[in-house]
Write a protein that binds this DNA or RNA. Structure first.
Lengths: 340, 340
DNA sequence: TACTTTTGCTTAAACGTTAAAGCAAAATGG
DNA sequence: CCATTTTGCTTTAACGTTTAAGCAAAAGTA
């Protein structure tokens, strides 16, 4: 691979010092009293030699790499890849690139990715922190690297966050079912230490409690991330046949997918026999003969806010700790029809 | 953000020169005759000071950034995000990070992303080149940056590629329908200059031709990427009601999703009334009451091969131009049942 | 004319690394 | 015991930038 052209190459060609070239190409020629003619010659030569600055060198000198690190649970998960996309767009627009890594909900992998990216001198991190990562995030925060937590948070770590109001959305989703007259409403949630998942769980429980119908924990199934498929299979069967629920709330995308499959598998008609509501949009909803109400997350807004906060922090337009709490809205059939 | 510890900090602490520290931490202490005790002291100090090398500085010196650039059409598209994931895993395992960008099937954006990543001194590119990007890819190739094209190719540009045999897979998919006795088989493909899409189209046409039943072009609907939804709507209606096809081949993931929706919308039963086959797996297949045969792409293998070829090239284990053609297999109901 | 100011440039040092070259002291060999 | 080799380290320069400081010539002022 041929060596790229450097400031020095341009300087030699024009017959000036590299400093002048640097000033001109950074559009600081006016402040630094570079002659108009020389400036033009330099710009022309830069074009001719197809010059691109070496950002590593610049970063070494300026300590700003214009790169942000994005760590999510799994980039191939549609929620995170959509998030990644909006983060990419926003970052590019601000002249930043993004390096990414997946943690697989595993703190050790998370640490590995963090080290990997630190080594690349990223200017800051946008992080969806995995299970068991409290200490790691705390350490990260204490290292004073600009940091924004997205999607997940820790109640006792004061740091920038961009979150969705999971509790409220869950509460509303459950209420939707309650309002339709259901009393025996099941819920399937992740067995997880992650607070945002617990919020979803608590939103459901609170709605049930306020409705005063029954102790919600009775109809609550917690499933494990690893053995999702079999556990959801069991959960759906238990809820339907033992607990005789008439509706189920699925608290995540993946749970909804598997859960709906199971309802079909056990021979029940979705919505007619077992009413449902889900957290997160899902392509498959379009293929059910009925409309599944779902909690829609403002992914684009989340990504934009996260990048904005992070870059402001990096560039010292610092405004202290910022916590953005976005509203996730329940999309029902009625609501959609109103739009059309 | 507190300054990170550098080689110099360690050198000062131990009381030696930075060179020694560099040798030791790069495990070149033996070759460079560093005393055992000093080496131990250096390693200890590095631990204590929580040293991480500055890869920008190293890269500046060595001209190797251990970063690869990944450019796809859209990272939020499930095919590409899955690909990104396997590329990430493979790259990390080889001590490389990946920076990504989406081209949106647009050559100008593609060029912008390329420049952006070049500037970051990536060691090489894995690229799913967008529409109208022949000249750009040619230029990239001529710049001698290590490069692997993935998913898409140009017949007249000799460069590393990792492809799937689209023609053959399409041919087999169409034959599957022919073997079931269908004669009037429609196909919906992208109107595109991208050869891999054309290959899919040609695979269909060739199968139809060999079957000698009818001129396939008659049942071929080309749809535009931009106005997908409406065009597929029209295409499906035309194929079913005017051309009286009894089966349809969907040549991409997105086309299949929209196409299947339309079949339902016009009141036809999938498979019973209109038989189908699709290119690429799709979550929604699980939600149809019938099994949709589909062409399964070896995404993991694609990512692994691309990274392997690229890094070998970067590290000069150069083996000339490599073209990998992977087989995409038709997954039918019968086949799946054999596995279980 | 003799000064100050402005203009247009160069020099030099630094960022954190790597690695070739150099150099003294200790160890070895005959 | 002197010459050679080995050992253990340092010095130096370089990668491509940025930027403060410096300096001579031209222009302005009085």
């Amino acid at each position: 691979m041929a060596r790229k052209t450097s400031l020095k190459d341009i300087a030699n060609k024009v017959g000036v010092s590299t400093s002048l070239v640097s000033y001109v190409l950074n559009n600081k020629d006016k402040e630094n009293r570079v002659g108009k003619e020389t400036a033009d010659k330099i710009r022309k030569a830069a074009k001719e030699l197809n010059y691109f600055p070496n950002l590593n060198a610049r970063s070494l000198k300026t300590n700003i790499s214009h790169t942000i690190g994005l760590i999510v649970a799994d980039i191939s998960n549609p929620f995170f890849s959509s998030l990644a996309r909006t983060i990419e767009d926003e970052a590019y627009a601000r002249n930043y690139t993004v390096i990414f890594g997946s943690s697989d909900e595993n703190n050790d992998k998370f640490i590995k990715v963090l080290d990997f990216l630190s080594t690349r001198q990223v200017d800051g991190f946008i992080v969806a922190s995995p299970e068991e990562s409290r200490e790691t995030v705390l350490g990260l925060k204490e290292s004073n690297v600009p940091l924004v937590l997205i999607d997940r948070y820790f109640s006792d770590i004061v740091v920038n966050t961009v979150m969705v109001d999971n509790f409220k959305a869950s509460f509303e989703a459950t209420n939707h079912l309650l309002n339709k007259g259901h009393k025996r409403i099941g819920a399937i949630v992740y067995e997880s230490t992650l607070l945002h998942y617990q919020d979803r769980c608590n939103g459901y429980l609170e709605a049930m409690k306020q409705a005063g119908i029954v102790d919600g924990t009775q109809f609550l199934a917690k499933v494990n991330h690893q053995s999702l498929q079999t556990e959801i299979q069991e959960a759906v069967q238990k809820l339907i046949f033992e607990d005789k629920v008439t509706a189920i709330y699925f608290s995540t995308n993946t749970i909804a997918t598997e859960g709906l499959k199971q309802i079909k598998n056990v021979g029940k008609k979705i919505q007619e026999e077992i009413d449902v509501v889900a957290f997160d949009e899902n392509l498959i909803f379009q293929f059910l003969d009925v409309h599944v109400p779902f909690v829609s997350q403002p992914i684009k807004k989340m990504g934009q806010e996260a990048v904005r906060i992070l870059i402001d922090q990096i560039e010292n337009k610092d405004q202290g700790i910022i916590n953005v709490l976005l509203k996730a809205t329940l999309e029902t059939k009625e609501k959609l029809q109103k739009v059309n």
